[in-house]
Design a protein around this nucleic acid. Structure first.
Lengths: 321, 321
DNA sequence: TTGTAAGCGTTATCAA
DNA sequence: TTGATAACGCTTACAA
């Protein structure tokens, strides 16, 4: 493998000059630049990335923490991040945590050890103070509302959008509303819970804990929901379902049991995934790929200031309400 | 950040000795080793990974080429690879190609440039000679039958399993059989096509090109299939569907149009994803996560010899045949 | 506009 | 069993 010194020799210049043209720095005469360019072509030169990294103290690696990679929500975020990473000559290092705190800490440790330049946490289980302790070691980007904290984020105001969806259902006449969610802990989930509770009290409805269904992540989890709803003496008339996949599962299962949707049970999904279009599911569109791109861009942004990007969402009315 | 030289000073030894204990090399006296260990503890030392990489000429990075990351088939492979990478202290670098050859070449170039230690290609669009040209630069692992070629692979014999499924349908009385697939090009798809053609001639059935449905990747693609089947004067009575998600989409869509499954149309899915269990879809189980793990292990295997791991599959009988 | 030389933090060779 | 010291290939003061 030819290196920068070989190039210098070939072009009859110093390594510094070679480095200059390699990095597009000014102050190189046209003829020397050309000579070097020719040498690069001829030798099929490829810079040694490790040497660059060592010298610059940068890795061009960005860590990405996701609980599961095989979940459409995170896969879509990943898609956006991967696209942007490629364009910016960065690579993504994957941390699949299964929501194990130890795994998240491993990722944070890698930041501390300078093995990655920045860390994007798409969803976390560790507490804020835990994260905060690693802030001095490099940028940490979150996918949740961090306004007031000293970390950048791209996020959806889940309180607002949940409240919006709930009020929409209320206007359609629903008074017994529940929701399905992946997990009840987590910042975003807490925001939604808060919206739900406030909604219930604002509209003087009964707060019914049984109307909250946890562990709803995949299509097949819809079965459980229908099961549970079917057993209730006083079932909900409408459900907010925080993933279109789950909503689709609910619709499918409901059909098999002759439960009419939206007649017996109205549904609002989230994300506007293709499956929701096919199955005509009313949904709140969340531009996940775009959020992924923005998260990545924040990760490599060298600005010291924390930036907060709120992403607006949009109701797509279809046939499940 | 304290470095190896600081440690040496603290422990009153040379950097060589420090490096020795860091890497568990022999020939270090117990007391010096202890002194160094103490220094490491006290200073909270973390090795500079870039320096290690430069010195060793290794990156501990493995590239992964997938056409789409937001597809369960590849997400499941990724899950397996990510798990194993973590355990072996490697990181995964993602290449999302959208089946663009240029993207695959970028990944191959990174191998050539030593920016990654090995490359796993889960699905490709480039020709074999293209790949072959990069073989001298590092291990390339494929997820397709490479027996006879000088590259390692973990794969399913798609010819065999397709033939098995086709004969199973034949025994159940089906004579008009078709299949749904993501794309018709690609090694694995070609194997399946070959099985299909041989099956048809072996059993003296008509080869009906219209029974082959391309672009079937996601749940929502099932709609197209039902659409097309509905328009046929002489529709297939059974379909092999190379992804359970698509099979689920077909089942869902069929229900809406009062097409009885398996009465009007029998279905065999592939992969045994959770969705197939929920929807009672007969399927060929493919252990994708496990395949992912094995692919990764092959990538970091230092053996020169190419290894070929055939993964057996298994029919899961449920209610769509 | 150009070049010399000093890092960056390791590993590995070789001599002691 | 140890330690100088030379790589590894690049960037970047600093000097000219």
């Amino acid at each position: 493998m030819t290196n920068i010194r070989d190039l210098a020799k070939m072009a009859g210049v110093s390594v510094t000059t070679v480095s200059r043209v390699l990095n597009n720095h000014p102050y190189v005469s046209a003829d020397k630049r050309n000579a070097i360019l020719v040498a690069i072509k001829q030798s099929n030169y490829q810079p040694n990335i490790n040497a660059v990294h060592l010298s610059m103290g940068k890795t061009f690696l960005v860590g990405v923490v996701v609980p599961f990679i095989d979940h459409p929500y995170f896969a879509l975020l990943m898609k956006g991040m991967a696209t942007e990473a490629l364009e910016n000559n960065y690579k993504l290092v994957l941390f699949q945590t299964n929501y194990l705190e130890t795994r998240e800490i491993e990722a944070l440790q890698m930041l501390k050890q300078k093995q990655i330049d920045a860390l994007i946490i798409c969803s976390r289980t560790s507490s804020w103070p835990t994260i905060e302790a690693y802030l001095p070691y490099g940028p940490i980007i979150l996918c949740e509302d961090t306004r007031g904290k000293k970390v950048s984020s791209t996020f959806v105001d889940h309180y607002k959008s949940f409240m919006f969806a709930l009020e929409y259902l209320y206007q359609k006449g629903h008074r017994q509303i529940g929701y399905c969610i992946g997990r009840i802990s987590g910042t975003n989930s807490k925001q939604r819970e808060m919206a739900f509770k406030n909604f219930v009290t604002n509209y003087q409805l009964a707060y019914e804990p049984a109307y909250i269904f946890e562990h709803c992540r995949h299509f097949e989890d819809g079965e459980q929901v229908i099961e549970l709803v079917g057993q209730m003496a006083n079932p909900p008339s409408a459900l907010l379902v925080t993933s279109d996949e789950v909503a689709a599962g609910i619709v499918t299962c409901a059909q098999n049991r002759n439960i009419s949707i939206p007649g017996d049970l109205a549904l609002i999904g989230f994300n506007n995934q293709p499956i929701s279009k096919m199955m005509n599911i009313t949904t709140i569109e969340i531009p996940l790929v775009d959020i992924g791109r923005k998260l990545f861009l924040q990760a490599i942004d060298t600005d010291e200031e924390a930036a907060y990007q709120e992403i607006p969402v949009q109701l797509i009315e279809r046939e499940t309400v």
